[in-house]
Nucleic acid binder design. Structure first.
Length: 368
DNA sequence: TATTCGTGGAA
DNA sequence: TTTCCAAGAAT
């Protein structure tokens, strides 16, 4: 598969690892090779940049220093630790994995990628990363950096957005990886991908492995990696009802499935769930929302429009446009409402998504 | 296999 | 403002 002769492979490994020893990043999760530390950092780093992760990692280790602490934590505390990181199922799966470790593995981490893959939330990449970094198993850890680096070095033009492509890279990397220092090899590739071999403005002229980089030598570096582009986010309209019931805020908890699972927002209603014509007026929006509260929540809402422009928030594949209403709800039983009333003080304890922060900001801007 | 899961930064 | 990308996994 690989055309490189053994001496070139050895040369590449030595060059890469020497550079890593000299210039590898000093990151909080690199202070030791504890599997718990490696695991937490790898989950946080999924689809998330190092700079963003660092403060989250440090706080997470204070709050949940061990697998046992994580297994026993209340979910609200977990989600609060993850608030703002996104992909919230990651942290809920981490707790499931922690409990799985304690129940089925006597609290001992399995030490191979194959076994690690059986744990909840640990896919092919994370299994390879933990196995190589924590347990010195010579297995690849194919992340976005590895795709970028090796597609350029070897001019691999398989589409990296296709699930089957990962195996092509795993086969190649298995032949190149250092058997003596597989964890450092994989981490060196990540550091390389984050420095000299970035997606948009690579600086291969100064890269320690530029002489191994065939795409660079051919002047085709920016042609790699090959990926098909994603579809546009689908627009969805919502109305948000910023309201109190008595002295407390009325907060809704999202479903345990789907987007932003179990997080808290003010009541959010899709406009398509309201009885509205296409060219509705503000008063019709209010009337329809009040009717929805009565019908679905059995709550009596008096509402008015907020004189602010809508909040917009774009997710990976949805773009929300949210109109704001405010008002009061007559104190009543919340049996038909998925949520609760929360004092202003207690509000800070609830895990809330970024879009809710935007709703608060816009609301406060209207209140002077 | 294709879709569904967030958010922040850069251009 | 829009688009793309960043240490992916579950379904």
């Amino acid at each position: 598969m690989i055309e490189w002769p053994p001496e070139k492979i050895k040369d590449f490994q030595t060059t890469l690892l020497n550079w890593y020893d000299d210039a590898g990043r000093d990151l909080p999760w690199r202070q030791d090779h504890e599997p718990y530390h490696v695991w937490v950092s790898e989950i946080m780093l999924q689809q998330t940049q190092v700079q963003t992760v660092i403060p989250y990692y440090q706080r997470f280790m204070k709050w949940f220093p061990t697998v046992t602490a994580l297994a026993q934590a209340p979910e609200e505390r977990l989600l609060k630790a993850w608030e703002g990181l996104g992909y919230y199922s990651r942290v809920r799966n981490m707790q499931r994995c922690a409990r799985q470790l304690l129940a089925d593995y006597d609290g001992q981490w399995p030490q191979t990628a194959a076994e690690l893959s059986d744990l909840i939330g640990i896919g092919p990449y994370t299994a390879g990363a933990i196995a190589s970094i924590a347990f010195n198993e010579p297995v690849p850890a194919v992340d976005g950096n590895a795709y970028r680096v090796f597609s350029r070095l070897l001019e691999i033009d398989a589409d990296i957005t296709k699930p089957g492509t990962r195996e092509i890279f795993e086969d190649v990397i298995s032949q190149l990886i250092s058997k003596e220092r597989p964890g450092d090899f994989n981490q060196a590739i990540m550091d390389l991908g984050a420095s000299y071999m970035t997606a948009r403005q690579p600086d291969t002229a100064h890269s320690p492995v530029k002489r191994f980089n065939q795409a660079y030598l051919d002047g085709k570096e920016l042609d790699y990696p090959v990926r098909t582009k994603k579809p546009r986010p689908q627009p969805i309209d919502y109305v948000a009802v910023v309201t109190k019931m008595g002295p407390d805020w009325l907060m809704a908890q999202r479903s345990s499935k789907g987007m932003l699972a179990n997080l808290w927002t003010v009541p959010l209603i899709k406009l398509s769930d309201l009885d509205l014509a296409e060219d509705y007026t503000v008063n019709e929006l209010i009337t329809a929302t009040v009717a929805y509260f009565k019908r679905d929540y059995q709550l009596d809402l008096t509402a008015e429009a907020l004189a602010v422009r809508p909040v917009t928030h774009t997710f990976t594949h949805q773009k929300w446009t949210i109109q704001l209403l405010t008002g009061q709800v007559v104190p009543a039983d919340l049996a038909f409402f998925a949520g609760k009333t929360v004092s202003a003080t207690a509000l800070a304890q609830l895990p809330m998504p970024k879009v809710q922060t935007k709703i608060w900001d816009r609301y406060h801007s209207s209140q002077g």
